[in-house]
């Protein structure tokens, strides 16, 4: 009976685990934070969630048997983010937010003219996308993940990564076009 305890006790970590974790997983902290920041749309919340995810990763570390440490960590970060969203902002996950029906007040042409900044414009457009679309774009375009990595992080079949990205990019193009009417003439 104590044997089953020990089998389960992946949380018994020693200095050697600590050094390995430091070497393999901790270097991907930026990736973890970046994904959390884009999923939660808030730096402050992302700090808390990335911290929690890192500690969870450490507790599960005995279960990591080599391979892609970044993808392994990001999977945990993503799960922690969704759990946090379910608890704190359930509405965001339930409604497939549609930027055509609910234009963000902050993306009015006036606000954009004041902001005037490409980064601002892209950030707002990305943030209007539903999280499922936002995450594939962030993983692909900011994190440079392969389709295989995206599939393992987001738990979607590898065969559908390409169409998920296609839809996400279409939504983003649309969000950008809506946000700046002066560019609308370019599309269609």
């Amino acid at each position: 009976m104590s044997g089953s305890d020990q089998g389960k006790g992946s949380d018994v970590l020693d200095a050697q685990d600590r050094a390995r974790f430091e070497q393999l997983v901790l270097p991907h902290l930026d990736a973890a934070f970046n994904l959390a920041r884009w999923l939660l749309r808030s730096r402050a919340d992302s700090e808390d969630v990335a911290q929690e995810a890192m500690l969870r990763a450490y507790r599960f570390f005995r279960g990591f048997h080599g391979g892609d440490a970044r993808a392994w960590l990001l999977q945990i970060v993503r799960n922690t983010c969704y759990t946090w969203l379910e608890k704190n902002r359930p509405v965001e996950l339930m409604t497939e937010f549609d930027e055509e029906l609910h234009p963000q007040p902050s993306t009015s042409p006036e606000a954009l003219a004041i902001a005037g900044d490409n980064r601002e414009r892209l950030t707002r457009a990305l943030e209007t996308l539903p999280p499922r679309f936002r995450e594939v774009l962030v993983l692909r375009e900011l994190e440079g993940c392969s389709y295989k990595e995206i599939a393992s992080i987001t738990a979607i079949p590898i065969g559908t990564v390409m169409s998920a990205l296609a839809r996400a990019r279409q939504r983003l193009q649309r969000a950008l076009t809506h946000a700046s009417p002066q560019e609308a003439s370019r599309e269609l």
Partner: peptide, 9 residues
């Protein structure tokens, strides 16, 4: 080009 990547503090 928009430096959207956000690094951990």
């Amino acid at each position: 080009g928009a430096s959207l990547y956000e690094r951990a503090p």
